[in-house]
Structure formats: C-alpha cells, structure tokens
Design a protein around this nucleic acid. Structure first.
Lengths: 342, 342
DNA sequence: CTGTTAGCGCGTTCAT
DNA sequence: ATGAACGCGCTAACAG
C-alpha cells in the first residue's frame, strides 16, 4: 500500500528554504526562531496545506494531543451538552476529542480493555459512568490518567455537583410552599440505581425528615415512561401527594404527561419538580434544579489538560453549584385533598 | 521529557518468546502465524495490557484508524443520535471517532483548515453542515475523503433523506384530513435558511399547489422560540389556519406551547405537525415525520469505511426513507372558523 | 539562531 | 512459519 501523498515537513522546509528542525520549531511555536523565518515557514505550510502528523510527533514526544471521552450514551441531552463543553475547552487547548459510547455499564470492563487508549490518548474523561466504589480501579490498567465527570470518585480527579444537597434544596422549596405530601419518583433498571439518583433520594429524605414529613418514594423504569408509570401510581393512591419531585426532568416529563392527559391542572392540583434543567424543562414550564452541565464538561477537560501538562496524577475535586429554577409547575398546594379541589 | 512507560511491542515479543514481527503479524490478524504462537502472543499482550500504538503503525501504513466527525452543534437531539449511529458502526469496524464541533458555518472555512485532519484521520464525515453548492470544495484541500451526512452533495458521497418529498407527504396528510388553511413555520437566522428547511418548504408548497390550497408561510428565529412566535402570529390572523406544519419538532414544540398556554385544544382547534420524530415528539403526542437519524449515522460511517478500504474517492448516494408518525396532535379540522368552535 | 543526527514504535520487505 | 533490518515523519539533543 503506497504511503499517502500528503506533504511532509521536508516539503515545507524545502519551500521555505530552511532545515527540517527549523520548520518543526516554527510550527510548534518553540522559542529561538527568527520572526521572519517563522513567518516564512508558516506561509509555506499554509500554501501546502500542511499539518503536522500527530502520529509521528507523538512517537517522539510521548504525547498524542488527544483525549478520549467515555459516555454511556450519546443521545440524551446531558451528554451532548457535556461534550460541547469539553469540545470548547479542548479546542482552545489544541487537543482533539475521541468519543466512545461504552453502552451498558455491565460490559464496561471488557470494552475499556478493548479500547486503544494506552499510548493512543493522553487522558480519559469518564462521563456519568455510575461506577461502584471499587470499579474506578478498572481504569488503572489502561495506563492513562482518568478524570471523572458528573461523578465524584474518591482520590480521583472529578467534577461533580452535590446531588444530595441540591435535591434537599428542591424538596425544601416544596415544603416551604406548604406541601406536606411530597412524593419522589426514582428510576431503576437491570443495572440498578444510578448514583446521582441515589444521592438525590438521600437529599429528599433528609429534607423531609427535617420537616417531619413522611417520605413517599415510588420506583419505576428510567426515562419519561417511568415518570408516567410513577405518576399513575401516585394518582391512584388513597391520599395522592400534592407535589411530586422527579429524579430528572425526563422522568418529570412523563409525570407531567400523565397529569395533563388526565386534564388535571399543574400546579393547581399537583406541583411537579424536575432535576437537570434540560431543554425540555423550559418548554414545559417545569420547575427544576439546574446543573451546569456545559461547565462540567469544560472543567473536566481543563482538569485533564492540567493532568497531562503536569504529567503527574491529579486528584483535584471540582464541585460546581446548582440552582433552583422556579417555573410554573410548582405552587402552593391545593386546599383540599380531592384531586380536583371541587 | 521521558518517553512514557507503556509496554511496547518488544515487551510482548520477549514475554511470548518470539520476534517482533511475529507479534506484529499475530496482533494484526495477518496470515502465516501458527495458531499456538498466535495464542501465546495474544495472551502475553493481554497480560501486559498492551495495545498497538496507532501513531507508530500509522506511520508505516499511512492509515490512522480514525475518522473525524464534524458537527455544527453537539447539543441537539439530532447530533447525539447521528453520533450514536456512527459510533456503533465504527466500533464494529475497529475505528475511532474524533468529534469536532465546528459551530458557526460562517467560520467553517477557517476552522476546517486549522483542524489536524490531513494525515491525522482517514476520512471526514460532515454532518448537517448546510453547505452552499460550491462550498463543498472547501473540503478538497484537507486532502482526506469526505462523506456528507444529512445533506445531499452533488458528486460526493452522501447520506440523506428526501426532505421535499417527506414534507409533501406530511402536508398531504393534513390536506387529506380536510384541512385547507395549513400554515408552515420555518426558521431563519443570520446565516439564512438551512437546506433542510428550504427543501421542506418546497415540499409543502408543492403539496398545497397540487391541492389548490393557498400556502401560508411564517418565518421566525430557529428553535422552539421561533415556533412560539410563529404560532402567535398565526393565532392573531383574521382567519387562523386549522393546521400548522412546523419545520422541525423543536419549532413545533414552541407552537404547541403557545396553543396550550392559550388553553386552546390540540388537535380540536388546531392540528400541529412536526418533523424529525425527536424524543420530545412522542412525549408531546406530536404527529411528525420520522427520519432515520441513527441509521444515517451508521450509513455515513459505513460509506467512510468503504472509501478508506477502497482507497479511492466514492460518490455513492444513499437515500433513506422517512415515515409519517401519526399521533394525537393532528385530526380533522374544527367545523367553524372561530378558534374555540363555540 | 539554525542545521545535523539519532531514534521514537511499528509494519514491511527480504531472508531463512 | 519466523526473524532481521530498514524506514515511515517527526522531535530533541547537540553542534555550529
């Protein structure tokens, strides 16, 4: 197979009338190159449409200029936003972003091992992989620094929010509005609960306990389908809750759908609160907890870049703030216990 | 700077008790390696956690095993799904996916040139970049085969749907239901219209003309905000339309929001049709045109892989089918011209 | 400030 | 079926 006919550094050198190493220095922005020469070289490179081969330079420097991002899914809003943040940060630091959809966490181990990471990327960012306490060790054998995004991992570089505190704030908001019967809808699949969900539940429970209110938790499948099912169960209880706090906006949307199809009014009959502030939340006028997903991506990429530049393991923890976004899906509770208030 | 301490191929060779070239052959699945030896080598590599350095092998083969994907945005549903399709296909063909968010198309040219594509990736997939007729030529100078996804480009490998025909089908569905006053909401920003939007408009117009109905087009900013504004304008007309066809689900969602906030019933008062079948559509019970976005990603990645393997330019066109997904946002028109029908 | 030289890790001849 | 030697394009250390 013939080697591709791309221009090489020697072509640029010839055109600029200098030596190979001068081109290398000039293009790399290294010091010790006369400004006029540098300009010449850059022009020659541009005219040839030349770009350095990262493969060749990485062979020497031991750096690839690439960061791998591992996501469980690509489709949900959350990952698109996080990737956008990372992309922005990596663009400014001149690094490239490799994206791998790892899918089911149960096959995570095997998949990670099959990935060409070691000596092919400088760092890995693992996004919302919901690892168990010890599972982070799986990343040790890939021989590349890892930054965790949207999950706090002990003694590892990670970027995260305080799900527990944020959920407690959200629950308190409902309590402060005067709600006493507040349900929490959480989701669970074959893999079990996500850590985020787990932490949010704890925050909800803490706030309820603090207020002397009895917790009411329903568990359904993930996504808006689960939200619809959960709300269905709540609406068929003897004493339906006046407010529902869903684990995520997606779950909340399912809950809202059921309420609206039943022609019950939100928030008159039942208040609904979500978590995420995804793009759907604004559309649906959903009160929710906003988490800075884009910024989490930025910070994760920044942490990765720092780790690479420092060439030593980093275990910095970056906790980002959440904020309650109050919209029209929450209000003071209905006065009576009848669903329609009539 | 010390070279990283990853295991090299020679380490595997030593451990397996064979030579370097045998390891290379075994790991690459080349012929001419005794089965027992191959097994030994693979075990040794696994034990060492060794993976081939693509940089080094690419230096020899001229192939990087990487495909770059260029997207204007990362956040919208569409791109996540398309990337998921590509990711799936690339995983099965053992290639890695580099993702670049190119952002504003106006700076596309400069950005593409700054990207380390030539001799760093084997192919480029450009997703929904909305290029003008001649703009595709910008990709020529990067010296890498390009596949266009979600845009038809003359004489270039591309994967796309027939937006015009799909939109005509959608409009015909509304006409067949008995609607005569059907509006189309399109979006436009500083960059102008997208090609998809443009093509859909043509389909709508053709279907309307065919039925002898007068077209009614409103143009607003992109996204659900534009949909809300557009619907506002339609609802304040002397003779509001009985059906609205939005350029996209996102726009349709904005339109739906306005209708619902006005306490007008969908589809009793006004039918609403979208385009995309995004995840929101199902949630909102929105009738829409489904386009196979995931499959478009798969096909684009497949085309890219074929082009690479054939090592010659490919200009195959892959047209994928759309289908109308009828939900509860469309129905026969209200009997009277009053908005509430009373 | 610039040029010369020696490898980086691997795939591919060509021997054996 | 296996091994030895060469070079892919580039950077780094050194010499000038």
């Amino acid at each position: 197979m013939a080697v591709s006919d791309h221009p090489r550094m020697s072509d640029v050198a010839e055109r600029a009338g200098v030596s190979l190493s001068t081109v290398s220095r000039a293009l790399r922005g290294a010091t010790g190159v006369a400004p006029s020469v540098r300009e010449n070289v850059e022009r020659a490179a541009a005219e040839l449409g030349y770009v350095v081969s990262r493969g060749a330079s990485g062979l020497v420097t031991g750096r690839t200029g690439r960061i791998a991002v591992l996501v469980p899914f690509l489709q949900p809003w959350f990952f698109g936003v996080a990737l956008a943040g990372m992309s922005t940060e990596m663009r400014s630091s001149g690094r490239d972003m490799l994206v791998y959809q790892v899918g089911d966490v149960t096959e995570l181990n095997a998949y990670i091992r099959s990935l060409p990471l070691r000596s092919n990327v400088d760092a890995v960012i693992a996004v919302a992989l919901d690892l168990e306490e010890g599972e982070a060790a799986r990343f040790d054998e890939i021989g590349v620094p890892v930054v965790f995004c949207s999950q706090r991992v002990k003694d590892r570089a990670s970027v995260f929010i305080d799900n527990t505190e944020a959920a407690a704030d959200a629950a308190r908001h409902l309590l402060n509005l005067g709600h006493a019967r507040i349900a929490y809808i959480q989701s669970s699949d074959e893999t079990g609960f996500s850590w985020a969900s787990h932490d949010r539940l704890r925050g909800y429970e803490a706030a309820m306990a603090e207020a002397g209110a009895a917790p009411l938790v329903v568990t359904e499948r993930p996504g808006h389908e689960g939200g619809a099912l959960g709300m269905g169960r709540l609406l068929s209880m003897a004493d339906p809750p006046t407010a529902v706090f869903a684990e995520s906006d997606d779950v909340a949307m399912g809950a809202l759908q059921v309420v609206r199809r039943s022609r019950l009014e939100v928030p008159d009959v039942v208040s609904v609160m979500g978590f995420d502030d995804s793009d759907m939340a604004a559309l649906a006028d959903l009160t929710t907890v906003a988490q800075p997903v884009f910024d989490m991506g930025v910070q994760a990429a920044r942490l990765a870049a720092e780790t690479i530049d420092a060439s030593e393991p980093c275990s910095e923890h970056v906790r980002l703030d959440t904020r309650l976004v109050v919209r029209r899906s929450t209000a003071v509770p209905r006065p009576t216990r009848s669903l329609t208030g009539r």
